[in-house]
Design a protein around this nucleic acid. Structure first.
Lengths: 206, 206
DNA sequence: ACAGTAGCCTAACGATTGTTAGGGTGCTAG
DNA sequence: CTAGCACCCTAACAATCGTTAGGCTACTGT
């Protein structure tokens, strides 16, 4: 017996191996037979756990979506200053990338597939809500004068998202979340306010 | 004279359309028939211009490689201070991404395909030489004390590359090269400024 | 003991893939 | 005018794709 071949964790093994392969080679380029090989089974046996390749992809992405949606919901309800909320969202995104790296890479890489799959309507709806939270938070930070004026006219959300998602390709031990937060926040914050090093002291946070 | 159905620019049209499709959907997911449709021809007719799908992909990537290699060679020979060389390399990379956006996205996205293609050995060799230039330049900037110490222990090259390449997915009018240079250089240059000093950031519970 | 079923297998299906064969049309050089 | 080539076509090839059908084995609850 292999390592911990318990009862129903073969399904998890399929999820894990297929997520890795999808992330590395792409969904279309990864065949069911290759996934089966990586799991030590036959291609047809995969259909005992998942009804189709699309459902397998969806199962991977739904797990990650549930995680990041929970984090964003908590941040949405928290009483935070704009820049703090922005940092919290960056950290939440990087935390999600750390836990569901392969799922994030699939979502980030095979966007055409994600947009076309009928099993991912909820994931797409959540993504729209997340984008709205990003935009509101960024607008608030700009209105508070905490963001460098050069970013007022562009979609800072898309810039930050692309920059964060790209780091999903980096192995975790190479670059820490703090490093990425450091680059991104220092890059976009207004310099005069950066000299204050943090929030204004006269604002209590309760 | 007219830019319409000239003489040999049908081949260029195939290159352009296929690059766009490869970049958006991935190499494996883009069939020869879809490319032919986008060019107003039949799939078999593509083989009059390119011997195979791999050769088509290689032709796209070789053009971009020739461009960026020329830029890097000039920077390598120029007498520049480390940080100035670093900025020049960032700008050269972003310039390449601007001119050959689709090629960069293909190279960045379908890395497994690039690594396996026998027609891309020269492109891969150039990439190794470019990485060495990046590492030497970054090491020099660190030795000169111009880079934030937090990046001394990690692969700053990979971090910068991923961050730059990710912006290839952004439409050109949304984010300018100056914006990206601003984020990256301000993020990594010393002296270091502590963000959110005195209060722990909102961290996800995971 | 025995029926049920979870889990995996082999074999094969139709559809689609990259690619080839061979022919047609129109421009161009001699 | 005519031979030749550039260019594109239709038709089809073998291989591979996701998926289905049906059967075997081992464990489970009663």
């Amino acid at each position: 017996m292999s390592q911990g071949t318990g009862r129903a964790n073969k399904r998890d093994a399929v999820l894990r191996e297929s997520a890795r392969l999808f992330a590395e080679r792409g969904v279309e380029a990864t065949t069911m037979r290759v996934i089966a090989d990586a799991c030590g089974m036959q291609a047809a046996s995969l259909y005992h756990h998942f009804a189709s390749k699309d459902e397998l992809v969806a199962a991977i992405l739904v797990r990650s979506d549930a995680h990041i949606t929970g984090l964003y919901d908590a941040i949405r309800d928290a009483p935070l200053e704009p820049v703090d909320r922005l940092e919290a969202m960056i950290r939440a995104t990087l935390d999600n990338l750390g836990h569901y790296r392969d799922a994030a890479r699939i979502y980030y890489r095979d966007r055409a597939h994600v947009a076309a799959s009928p099993l991912l309507t909820q994931v797409r709806d959540h993504a729209v809500a997340h984008d709205e939270l990003w935009d509101r938070t960024i607008d608030a930070a700009i209105a508070a004068g905490r963001v460098s004026p050069r970013f007022a006219a562009i979609s800072l959300r898309r810039l930050l998202q692309e920059l964060m998602w790209s780091t999903a390709r980096l192995r975790g031990d190479a670059v820490s979340a703090d490093d990425i937060v450091h680059v991104l926040l220092r890059g976009i914050l207004a310099p005069e306010l950066e000299l204050n090093r943090g929030r204004p002291p006269h604002r209590p946070k309760s």
